[in-house]
Design a protein around this nucleic acid. Structure first.
Lengths: 348, 348
DNA sequence: CTGTTAGCGCCTTCAC
DNA sequence: GTGAAGGCGCTAACAG
């Protein structure tokens, strides 16, 4: 058994309909140029033969492929799938197909993927790109590029401004009586991570809070667990994590350690990818990834239509979603924290 | 500012290298046919001009695109991303690009996507396809198709056999003293759902357990919450859920209801997509989605290479992963269950 | 080993 | 409103 490949061509349809291939072509691209009668005849013949225009031939002739590529650092990170899904749906509305690339957090891989896709797409959406600014600018010079969560001047970009939500989180923690907090960071190449770290520092300063920063290159549940001891060791009474996964890992580890949340230690996540599905339900910064995906695609479509890029910088705001992992600091905690770490004690 | 599109063609490279385009073409496809000297000359010229072969032209000429399409019912369901990622990585090894399609659980949409992709891919991987057998057979007649978690005779398929793991779960629950359990189902079109339901029934019979079945069309956290009351109302002391998301929702709802897990009610998930990230850590059936994605892609590649499909039916086995949501039935529970539902009492 | 010659299937001027 | 002809960029016989 061998897979068939022989699809009918424009010529066969033409013959069947008793016209030339020009007319068949027109019937599929600019029917208004033909008499309704002819169009009907051709459509019928095409239908009967199961004719579908050959994509490559059309692309070769027009230079347009009707494809775009979407590249993300890690498909399996729950932050991305909803974004991917949203982008996909939008692309669909415009009759575009989308290539998905998974860079696996590796700039080299990302670059390679872009190269592989370049020949058959109209443009790119790069999500949380790990490429250097220069590389991005270079690629953008060849094909339209829209960035999500990456701020490169001159390149159209959608930014989810977690700063606002993070600042709100800090303020919220201050109100609850926390005096020292720790920011548990994410990937180095991540624009969001940098933005969040800065936002925490700034807001903490505004509220007169102390802040420690520790780093956690690969953001995920397990690494969240692992970094928890270090977070406690800073003497902070609350943590703001780079993302929900990290926060969730911390929650699990804290539970194992017998540290009560939020009574003994507060945890705030970021991106709200878990919803209320953690235990306790996680206080976190809202998620705008669906809107971001949608906006990026619309922006790209607009660029492709007008064949001209504008230096758009579209910012999506966020806010704090308060659930159950933040609360009033316990009576003794405030001074205890001031004395330094009690992490080792908590451990036992 | 207008995006540039003028990429150098094979002719320009030929001119620059002082050869004909045939040689340039060969330098890129079968360099062993040329003298090393010529290849070097051509490579240099190509490099200098930044030449990259035009994908569409090549596809038009060869009939090969170097693309495959992967279609899933719901990108955002955590079961799929790891599979997608694995497939993507494998495709990469073979220098294939992958289109991602999101059918959104809708057969119509799935069909439409397949049509859209058909012209520019060598083959398809359909994951948990919602199409009818006939539709699948029809598509497979045009382009190679590999199925994951869908069992259609004659179509190469990878099946994750959750039956074994589910049976193990039932046996585990029987050992713990449960006498009645409830299967909380998933999407109607899902092969996995059917398989699991049957496995539960069969294993329950083997162990002399009573089993109720309730349905939950859209498997997710929220719907898991909603169905919990009904699950309790069956009088069962343990639930096996279609997937981890549903189980997680049930866990949250049970916590809110004040029903202790596993003391008052046991919960088993399926697919192990959450790892130990629930609270309590979820007992569940192991996940083979990464292997499935990898296997499907390798199978497709093999088919494309040999240009002949074999009727492969590759089954991936599963087992029970015991964590903390299953435990010994409480002393009084067994007889209580026998008397009927106490769900309404638990609710208050 | 390398050049010559036809297309691949479609779109698009240019005529009629 | 429709046909004829050329070309998009590349590959694949066929010669030499």
């Amino acid at each position: 058994m061998t897979p068939r490949q022989n699809r009918p061509t424009i010529n066969q349809v033409a013959a069947a309909a008793g016209v030339t291939k020009s007319s068949v072509s027109r019937a599929f691209t600019r029917p208004e140029m033909l008499s309704p009668e002819t169009v009907r005849k051709i459509s019928a013949a095409a239908e009967r033969l199961g004719y579908v225009p050959n994509h490559s031939a059309r692309a070769l002739s027009t230079g347009r492929h009707g494809n775009i590529a979407l590249i993300v650092p890690d498909v399996a990170n729950p932050f991305f799938p909803p974004l991917i899904s949203a982008a996909q749906s939008e692309a669909d509305r415009f009759d575009y197909c989308v290539f998905l690339g998974n860079s696996n957090e590796d700039p080299g891989q990302e670059d390679k993927l872009i190269g592989r896709f370049a020949g058959q797409v109209e443009g790119f959406v790069l999500v949380s790109s790990r490429l250097s600014d220069d590389q991005i600018v270079e690629h953008a010079a060849r094909r339209p590029v829209v960035l999500i969560n990456r701020d490169v001047k001159g390149i159209p970009r959608i930014l989810i401004d977690s700063a606002a939500g993070v600042a709100e989180a800090v303020s919220h923690l201050a109100t609850l009586g926390h005096r020292k907090l720790v920011y548990v960071g994410g990937p180095h190449g991540s624009w969001s991570n940098k933005q969040r770290r800065i936002a925490v520092r700034r807001a903490a300063k505004d509220h007169g809070l102390e802040v420690a920063v520790i780093s956690n290159e690969f953001a995920a549940f397990e690494s969240g667990r692992k970094i928890t001891a270090a977070a406690l060791a800073t003497g902070a009474t609350a943590a703001i994590a780079f993302d929900d996964l990290t926060a969730q890992g911390m929650l699990a580890e804290l539970a194992d350690m017998g540290v009560a949340v939020p009574a003994d230690f507060a945890v705030v996540g970021c991106d709200d990818v878990l919803g209320a599905a953690t235990y306790p339900p996680l206080t976190t910064v809202s998620n705008r990834s669906v809107e971001a995906g949608k906006a990026a695609l619309n922006l790209l479509m607009e660029i492709l239509q007008n064949n001209a890029i504008r230096d758009v910088r579209y910012v999506l705001d966020t806010n704090l979603v308060i659930r159950k992992t933040t609360g009033q600091v316990k009576a003794g905690k405030r001074s205890e924290a001031a004395l330094g770490s009690d992490a080792n004690r908590a451990r036992n």
